[in-house]
Design a protein around this nucleic acid. Structure first.
Lengths: 174, 174
DNA sequence: CACAACCTTAACGTTAACGTGAAGGTCGTG
DNA sequence: CACGACCTTCACGTTAACGTTAAGGTTGTG
């Protein structure tokens, strides 16, 4: 078991912005910009006002990056999908401080609702992508048909050389 | 013998830019911009230099729009995926004028290769989306677990997560 | 043939999402 | 405690992808 620097599981392990950038593949500027846009708030600040990020921040930033790069959402859309940072802060605090089971459950319910919305959005996007892929495959099949009835016998090897046709092929349709 | 507006199968049916816009869901400005960027060239121009688009142009524009909106590609990436317009024009002409089967076949082969590249790109994107969906579902399951053992039993794993301790109310962090 | 409803090019404006300094404070290691 | 590597907050610059007039030509319909 690789104990890192301490055995206490509640160790903070806060990172500064450059390390976070390296870790997430974002630039420091982008991270500050996302903060400015209200997409996240670093877990803490040092005495000298350095931003300090925890694991949850990293996770959030990686998610933002995926939404941007992989799903292609705008920061505005991402803001819609994510819990806004004010609420996040508030809920974290409340979740830690409350002993009320009902309240905890309510908070968790909210979270699942939000995640469900995210999943729904992503699935919808995938559906549109699927449709595009189907279309492209349709086009591909169409081209293959044309190729097939260009010559009665399939030629296994496309060279650059001219080829005498065995007999006139008439373009068939559908 | 040639009937003018009826029954001829090779009827052009050219549209002007505003109709194309309505048909494709793009703006006229966007269409002109795509032309400027080399993504397409209208099939013809009127005497007075009006742009005139044919069915193939429409198809291409719809595809561009899908690539932009559904797949989230930049116009530069779209340009990479599509045959550049110069080649498209050239190949169309050659395909219609050539009687050479080998050449036709070569052109078709090129087209299938291009479509295959498009499919590959789209499939790769879908894979990344799938991965994101899987992650989100993982988060959802995680939340459900927490919900389950909130009113089921005590905490199975502390560390990082919420803390359903029997003793309430602590406010220590820093 | 008059005229409204299109169209053209050209040019400047706008927004999102950062990049790129500048001017100065902070951190930790020798 | 000095110093280099990091950080901070402005603030202006840049690129993509259009939006928006402006000034003028084209088309088809009454």
């Amino acid at each position: 078991m690789p104990t890192k620097t301490l055995a206490t599981p509640a160790e903070p392990a806060l990172l500064r912005i450059q390390d976070v950038a390296a870790e997430t593949g974002l630039t420091t500027r982008a991270i500050r910009y996302y903060e400015e846009m209200g997409l996240l708030e670093p877990a803490a600040r040092s005495d000298g006002a350095y931003r300090l990020f925890d694991a949850s921040d990293l996770e959030r930033l990686r998610f933002i990056r995926s939404l941007r790069d992989d799903a292609g959402f705008s920061l505005a859309q991402i803001g819609q999908l994510l819990e806004d940072e004010a609420a996040r802060e508030r809920n974290r605090q409340r979740f830690r401080t409350t002993g009320d089971k009902a309240e905890r459950r309510a908070l968790l319910k909210d979270a699942t609702a939000r995640v469900d919305r995210q999943i729904e959005t992503l699935v919808a996007k995938r559906a549109r992508l699927d449709s595009m892929i189907a279309d492209a495959r349709g086009r591909r099949r169409h081209l293959d048909e044309h190729l097939a009835n260009l010559d009665g016998g399939p030629d296994p090897h496309p060279g650059g050389g001219p080829h005498p046709a065995p007999h006139p092929a008439r373009g068939s349709r559908r």
